[in-house]
Design a binder for these strands. Sequence first.
DNA 1: ATCGTATATCGTCGAACAACGATGATTGAA
DNA 2: TTCAATCATCGTTGTTCGACGATATACGAT
Lengths: 116, 116
Amino acid sequence: MTSVRHSTPTKSIEECHVPPEAEVVVAPPDDETLATLAKAIGHPARLMILRLLADRETCITGDVVAELPLAQSTVSEHLRILREAGLIHGEIEGPRTRYCIDAGGLALLKAGITVL
Amino acid sequence: MTSVRHSTPTKSIEECHVPPEAEVVVAPPDDETLATLAKAIGHPARLMILRLLADRETCITGDVVAELPLAQSTVSEHLRILREAGLIHGEIEGPRTRYCIDAGGLALLKAGITVL
DNA sequence: ATCGTATATCGTCGAACAACGATGATTGAA
DNA sequence: TTCAATCATCGTTGTTCGACGATATACGAT
């Protein structure tokens, strides 16, 4: 069960507007988790999505679709992969979904990489 | 053409014994390169290999095979993926192959991740 | 209540990955 | 020269990925 629309939102709406660059300190993840995180960013489209979310604060699926040369369903799939890896966070906002970077997941990834 | 055994070695033998933690500074790679690097470490076995190479200085294929619960051919394949991504460096040493971490590639990866 | 919009999910298809055993090339030793 | 060791490569098989169109669901507006 990994749906967004059909599951309860996991975090409050304020999560999308955290102070930029909080620089959280976390312990490096285990290999399994790190591999999942690395695989999640192991695709150019998903890197673009992360950069997009880092630049803008809009974060709506349609915006991402507009920026990438991919079908809506494909983008949605990339968003799902990033979300399940814990790198982004989706929030239902009326008929649309607002995405933002999950600072915790990103910090976990950075911690795992820098320790290599 | 990506063979090791049948191509000329790309670097001198001293490459495997660089001063540990030289902390090279590099520019972040483009998305395509970063995705390739990330995908390369997006597997637990390959993470284990990197840690193994970071700990030991032995770096011989047989040692890696001995440490992982995988067939020799499978390990060789993982080594190839890491090598082609530029994260490790293989050197023919008589009938065996000595591997070591490619500090440049690893620095590239770290640079790309920390910038996210 | 109906309609249009936004988006996740499904089904499909081809490509890439992961693992293995078998094979072959190369080297050092007997 | 023969033999054993070491390792990359090949061929195969099953699994996962990436992309798409089509569909279904939820919601806001009419």
